[in-house]
Amino acid sequence: MVESNVGPVFYILAFLIIASAVMVVSLKNIFHCALALVMCLFSVAGIYILLNAEFLAAAQVLIYVGAVAVLMIFAIMLTTNLASRNIKQVTENALVSVFICALFCLGTIFLLWATPAKIWRYATESLPVDNTAIIGKYLMTEFVLPFEVVSLLLMAAMIGAIVLARKERS
């Protein structure tokens, strides 16, 4: 890990991410859950800025906070009586899932702790200042094929969404 980036700001953001993520899966009102999700996504964007990845942070705010989360809130508000109702968030398998998640989480933290930082590629060097331009260049040269296939993917998703959501006349 890069030592210089781990300051008080990082810890505040990390705390915000974890706290709001827990709120997303534990709050009783689904509207509050969606607001907590917005908070969580915003804090992740903050981490990206700490790592000098401005483009990623902007994309995160635009797409996840701006589009996805706002759509989610609209969907909740437009669904009758959903915003004011209390929902049950605990499943029958809560114990099992908590166990598996805790095991995975602790295992990952232990393994990351035990790994020396120099193993990670690019861990000790910070991102170049013009990284946004570099991303653009890669998208237009080496990664142009996957970039174009994504548009095909979006078209398939759009056709599918229209088919499923359309009201049939019969």
Binding site: V149, L153, A156
Partner: peptide, 22 residues
């Protein structure tokens, strides 16, 4: 990355196809 996008292009139409009898 292209592997992942290929896999998504495979599965996303299949989500819709599985639910095709609305």
């Amino acid at each position: 990355i292209s592997l992942y996008i290929g896999l998504e292009l495979t599965t996303i139409p299949l989500f819709v196809l599985a639910a095709f009898f609305k």
